[in-house]
Amino acid sequence: MQAPSLTRYVANGVTLLGDTSRPGGVTFAFTERTGGVSKAPYASLNLGSRCGDDPACVAENRARALAALDAEKIAASLVEPRQVHGDHVVVVDSSAPEALAAARAQAQAGADAIVCTVPGVPVLLCFADCVPVVLIAPGAFAVVHSGWRGTLARISAKAAAVLAEEAACETADICAYVGPHASAADYEVSAELLATFEDEFGTIVHTAETERNLDLSAAIRCALTRVGLDSARILDACPSTVSNTDRFYSYRAEGGICGRHAAIAYL
């Protein structure tokens, strides 16, 4: 696969950030907040089903987002985990009804990464400052939710290892796309938490904007390279959610009441 890249584009009124080359046979994108039907404070393309929005609006928004990715015909197979800020990885390796139902049940029991190796199964995870990571291998992918707890637990690296095993490839063959999140300039944490991250990942996680700014994506990149990913195949070029609330939802900037954008992928 070629080096990862992201393009911002609009499809059916929905604004997306994606690699339109379909690396590894995977269609994926990070959504923005425009193009949906939700009202304030969830306006407008809220894809989160657990933040207080009208379920009918969420359903319509998801239909629009999937259609923008040409996935409307496989919408009934959608896998969406109940995200719990942990490090559990669920594998979807069959689209047979019973197997898919079992994988969905595992995901709903609590998971923050989904590895998928079968065509026709879209995966959706939601975000509003935490770090979305899409991992692409030849013929397989993973979508990861990495808040500070998940980052500390190296969930992206764990998902990469599982993905490599399921795709029968080396971790060096994987491309990683780090999506929009609260960047270091906008993410001040306690001195204790910053010290914990420095102990785990080194001073690369600490930027100079303030005494306590934390760079989660630096920690994720460190964890990924330690399990064998090539740093040239890790792309982190997205704007900060906190300082771009016209484009993305931000739990931190919007006082804890907001919608959720998403990372969506399928083979």
Rank of each mutant, 00 (worst) to 15 (best):
I155L: 14
V134M: 09
L135N: 04
E165G: 04
P138A: 11
I136T: 11
V134Q: 02
A161L: 10
S156C: 08
L152G: 14
A164V: 14
E165A: 09
G150Y: 15
A153N: 13
A153W: 08
V133M: 06
L163K: 01
S146Y: 08
V134E: 05
R149P: 09
V144G: 04
I136L: 11
A164I: 11
S156W: 08
G147I: 14
G139T: 13
A142M: 06
R154L: 11
V143A: 00
A140C: 11
L152T: 10
V144Y: 02
I136W: 00
K158W: 14
A140V: 09
A159Q: 03
L152M: 14
T151G: 06
A160E: 00
V162M: 03
G139K: 09
F141E: 15
A164Q: 09
V143N: 00
S146R: 07
R149A: 12
A161F: 08
A159P: 02
K158Y: 14
V162S: 05
V144F: 10
A161C: 09
A161Q: 08
S146C: 07
A153H: 13
I136Y: 02
A160H: 01
T151P: 08
A140W: 00
P138N: 13
T151D: 02
A140P: 07
A159N: 04
V134F: 02
K158R: 13
R154I: 09
V133D: 05
L152S: 15
G150Q: 13
W148F: 13
L135C: 05
T151N: 08
R154F: 15
A160Q: 01
A157R: 03
T151W: 10
A159M: 06
A137F: 00
G139L: 12
A140I: 07
G150I: 14
I136K: 03
A142D: 04
A159Y: 04
A153R: 13
A137I: 12
G139S: 14
W148K: 15
L163A: 07
V162E: 08
A164Y: 00
G139F: 08
L135Y: 04
G150F: 15
A159H: 06
G139C: 13
R149I: 11
P138H: 12
V144M: 02
L163Q: 01
T151R: 06
A140K: 03
I155W: 15
F141T: 12
A142F: 07
K158Q: 09
V133Y: 06
V162W: 05
A142R: 01
A137D: 12
F141W: 06
A159S: 07
S156A: 13
V143M: 02
V143S: 00
I136E: 09
L163H: 03
R154D: 13
A157H: 02
R154S: 10
I155V: 15
V134D: 07
V144R: 01
